[in-house]
Measured scan of single mutants.
Amino acid sequence: NQASVVANQLIPINTALALVMMRSEVVTPVGIPAEDIPRLVSMQVNRAVPLGTTLMPDMVKGYA
């Protein structure tokens, strides 16, 4: 199964993503693939992302 990017902490709106904020986990539904974690670093989220939430492409500015 494909691992997705999951929030490792609460990520406030407009926060630039850092490695420590993300982990990979096999979840349903599938979100952003875990292999894209390096690409996500320094991109901003466009909403608050609670701990344990799967990151979806529409949550990250400039990802989709």
Rank of each mutant, 00 (worst) to 15 (best):
T54Q: 03
E25P: 00
V30M: 13
E25A: 08
D58Y: 13
Y63P: 03
V60F: 04
S24W: 10
P29I: 05
S4Y: 03
T53M: 12
V5I: 10
R39C: 15
V49Y: 01
V49W: 03
V30Q: 10
L40E: 00
A64N: 13
P33M: 08
T54L: 04
N8C: 05
A18H: 11
I37W: 03
L17M: 05
A18T: 15
I32F: 03
I13C: 15
D58S: 08
I32T: 02
T53G: 09
V30Y: 13
T15Y: 12
P12R: 07
V5A: 09
M22S: 02
V45Y: 00
I32K: 01
S4L: 02
L40Q: 00
R23I: 09
G62I: 04
L40T: 02
M43E: 04
Y63E: 03
D36F: 09
A7Q: 02
G52M: 05
G62F: 06
V41A: 05
L19K: 10
Y63L: 06
L40M: 07
E25Q: 07
L55T: 01
T28M: 08
N1A: 15
I11L: 09
V5P: 01
V5L: 03
S4W: 02
V5N: 02
V60Q: 02
Q2I: 12
G52A: 11
A16N: 15
Q9C: 06
Q2T: 11
L10P: 14
A18Q: 15
T54I: 11
A64D: 09
Q9I: 13
E25I: 05
M43R: 12
L19E: 09
M43S: 08
M43V: 05
P57Y: 10
M43P: 01
I13W: 13
I11T: 01
P50Y: 14
V5Y: 00
A34I: 07
A48W: 08
S42T: 13
V41E: 05
G52K: 04
T28Q: 10
N14F: 13
V49M: 05
I37F: 03
V49S: 02
A7C: 04
V26S: 10
V49L: 06
N14H: 14
A18K: 11
R47L: 08
V26T: 10
M59I: 06
V41Q: 05
M56R: 06
L40A: 00
L19Q: 07
I32A: 00
M56P: 01
N8R: 12
S24D: 11
A3H: 11
P29Q: 05
N14R: 06
L10R: 10
L40N: 00
I13V: 13
Y63W: 12
V49A: 04
A18P: 00
P33K: 07
E25D: 12
K61E: 11
N8V: 08
R39W: 12
T15C: 06
L19A: 11
L19W: 09
L51K: 10
Q2R: 04
S24V: 11
V6H: 02
V20W: 15
K61D: 11
A34D: 09
M59T: 05
A48V: 14
P33N: 11
E25R: 05
V30G: 07
V20F: 12
T54Y: 00
I32V: 07
Q44C: 14
V30F: 12
V60W: 00
V26W: 10
L10W: 13
E35K: 07
T53S: 14
D36K: 08
M21S: 04
L51Y: 13
V60S: 01
M21E: 03
T28S: 13
I32R: 00
Q2F: 14
T15R: 06
S42C: 10
A48Q: 14
P12H: 11
A64Q: 15
L19I: 14
P12T: 07
G31I: 01
N46C: 07
A7Y: 02
V20H: 14
S4R: 01
P50W: 06
P29D: 05
P50F: 08
S42W: 06
I37N: 00
M59C: 05
I37T: 07
S4M: 02
V27L: 05
E25L: 07
I11H: 01
I37Q: 04
M59W: 07
R47D: 06
M22R: 00
M59Q: 04
Q2H: 12
P57I: 04
M43K: 07
N1E: 15
P38G: 13
A16G: 07
Y63C: 05
Y63F: 07
R39S: 09
E35W: 07
N8H: 07
M22K: 00
T15M: 09
T54E: 02
L51A: 15
P50V: 11
K61C: 14
T15I: 08
V5Q: 01
A64I: 13
N1F: 15
M22Y: 02
Y63T: 03
Q9S: 12
Q9T: 13
I37K: 05
N1I: 14
N46A: 12
L51T: 13
Q44P: 08
T54D: 02
A16F: 12
I11C: 03
G52D: 09
A7E: 03
M43T: 04
V41K: 05
L19N: 06
V27W: 03
D58L: 10
D58I: 07
M59E: 02
M22D: 03
V45R: 00
V60Y: 00
P12D: 09
M59K: 00
P29W: 03
R39P: 01
D36I: 06
R47C: 08
T53Y: 12
D58N: 10
I37P: 00
V6L: 07
L10E: 15
P38D: 08
L19M: 14
M21N: 07
P29R: 04
P57A: 12
I13M: 12
V26Q: 10
I13E: 13
I11R: 01
G62E: 10
R39Q: 07
N1M: 15
I11K: 01
K61H: 14
M43H: 12
A64S: 13
P38M: 09
Q44I: 14
V45S: 05
Y63M: 06
P50I: 06
A64K: 14
M59S: 07
V60T: 02
P57S: 08
M59V: 07
P50L: 11
L19G: 06
N8W: 04
Q9F: 06
T53Q: 13
G31F: 02
L51R: 15
V30T: 10
Y63R: 04
P12S: 06
P12L: 08
R23E: 12
G52C: 04
N1T: 14
M56D: 04
T53D: 14
M43D: 02
M56W: 05
A48G: 07
T53W: 10
V41I: 08
I32M: 02
L10Y: 14
Q2V: 13
P12Q: 13
L40F: 01
L19D: 08
N46Y: 07
A7P: 00
P50N: 10
M21G: 03
D36V: 09
G31E: 01
T53H: 15
D58A: 12
